[in-house]
Every structure is written in C-alpha cells, then in structure tokens.
C-alpha cells in the first residue's frame, strides 16, 4: 500500500490522478450535456428525466459526493502541480517563445479557474437556487418539478446567459488541451491512433460547448420556449 501511495506521489503519479479525475469530470460533463439536450424535446422529456434522477436519492447523492470528491482531487492536484512547476523555474526568461504549445495549453490554470468559478455559480444558481433572479419553483402538468421552466426563465436574462456562455468558453479552452493531454499522460500512444488521440481534445471541447451553448442560446433566442 505504501508503495502504491508512493507511486501516486511522484509528479507522474500525480499527473495520472489529475488525468483520471479530469476524464471522470469530462465524462460527467458529457452526460450532463446529453441529459440537458432533452430540452429540445420539450418540457415533458426534460422534467421526467430530472424526476427520474431525483427518484434515486442514493444514486444521486453518491454521484454528487463522488463528483465533488473527484473535483476536489482534481483542483487540489492541479494547484499542487502548478506550484511545483512554478518552483521549477524560479527565474523567468526575458524572452520566451512557444513553438508548438496551443493557447489553450498555456492558459490551463486560468481556464480551470473560470470553470471552477462557473461551477460554483451554476450550483448556487440552478441547483440550489440561492443566487440569481429567483426562478419560480413550479410543478408541471405531470406533477414533476418544472426544471424546463427553470431553464426557460433563467436563460432569458442576458446577464445569466453571458455568465453561462463565458463558463462554456472557459470549459472549451480547458478541454481543448485537457482531453488529449490526459490520454498522453495515461500512456495512450500508437502510431495508427496518434492523429485520433490528438484530435480528441478539440473534438470533445467543440462537442460539449456546442451542445451546452445551443441550449442556452436556443432558450435566449426563444427557439425553445
């Protein structure tokens, strides 16, 4: 056991945990997006889906606590590694030019912070309903909690839309580098697959952001009402 602990304490071990936790969170983000896309199928679909999730409190809370744990690990390791990395070069170059590094890869800390702040806001706003213009918590015709209504109400406010879109842009930047990077950290590499692995990050980023922003804008532009 101590050996395993030592294994994950090294820089590479920490990176593996960072990658695994990150990929876990990416999985959730995709799942979350796919669920929410049901908004396009109308209020009934979305509300019954929401009720379906809430009907399994044990699963729901296990998932929530699990996600929170993963997120905490991810953020803690990211902070730990960045501090370590900063110490590795106490004096910066007067001029430093990049050749291969994408803008996304150079702004991981910033985009990560944007995503973190956004998640906190999102939870306080839609999940807990503590911040933001208080939406009417209603019951729909089928007796489900009207999550659909909540969305419609929330995304008619341009400030909220702006915050959500900004959060998604941050997420896009983060995932653009994160997904392919995680696969590399986990050691996925094969001559025949390298193109695919490299494209994974930008593709996932695009997919998630298109999906999520589509929901937000569809509501804001009254395509979905």
């Amino acid at each position: 056991m101590t050996r395993l602990l030592r294994h994950f304490q090294s820089s590479v071990g920490s990176k593996v945990l960072l990658a695994l936790s990150g990929l876990g969170l990416v999985g959730y983000v995709i799942f979350h997006m796919l669920g929410n896309l049901q908004v396009f199928e109308g209020s009934r679909a979305l509300n019954s889906y929401a009720a379906f999730l809430r009907d399994m409190p044990i699963v729901l809370w296990t998932a929530r606590i699990g996600l929170l744990g993963i997120a905490v690990i991810h953020v803690a390791l990211a902070i730990h590694l960045s501090l370590q990395n900063r110490r590795a070069r106490p004096r910066a170059y007067a001029i430093h030019r990049y050749r291969y590094a994408s803008i996304a890869s150079r702004t991981m800390a910033a985009s990560g912070l944007v995503v973190l702040l956004f998640i906190v806001f999102h939870l306080l706003h839609l999940t807990a309903g503590i911040v933001g213009p208080s939406p009417p918590d209603r019951i729909d015709a089928d007796g489900y909690r009207d999550v659909y209504g909540l969305l419609i109400h929330a995304f008619q406010n341009p400030v909220i839309v702006l915050i959500y879109v900004a959060g998604q842009v941050g997420l896009a930047f983060h995932l653009h580098h994160a997904v392919s990077s995680s696969l590399q950290t986990l050691g996925f590499e094969h001559a025949a697959l390298n193109g695919l692995l490299k494209a994974a990050g930008p593709s996932v980023a695009l997919l998630v952001v298109l999906g999520n922003v589509a929901i937000i804008l569809a509501v804001f532009l009254r395509i979905v009402r």
Partner: peptide
Amino acid sequence: GSCGNQYECEAVCPKRISVRFIATLNREYR
C-alpha cells in the same frame, strides 16, 4: 517540474526525439 504535454521539448530537441516516448514513459510508470 511535471509534464504539461505542450510538446515544446520536441520542438526544440536537436535530435527531434518524439513526445511519443513520454507516453511510453507514462505507460512504463503505470
């Protein structure tokens, strides 16, 4: 420091050593 997978190393390597080997290293470590 730790690897950020930006691949600047490969860009400046005089012998053009591929970052594919970093994936191999990660695999070996795992």
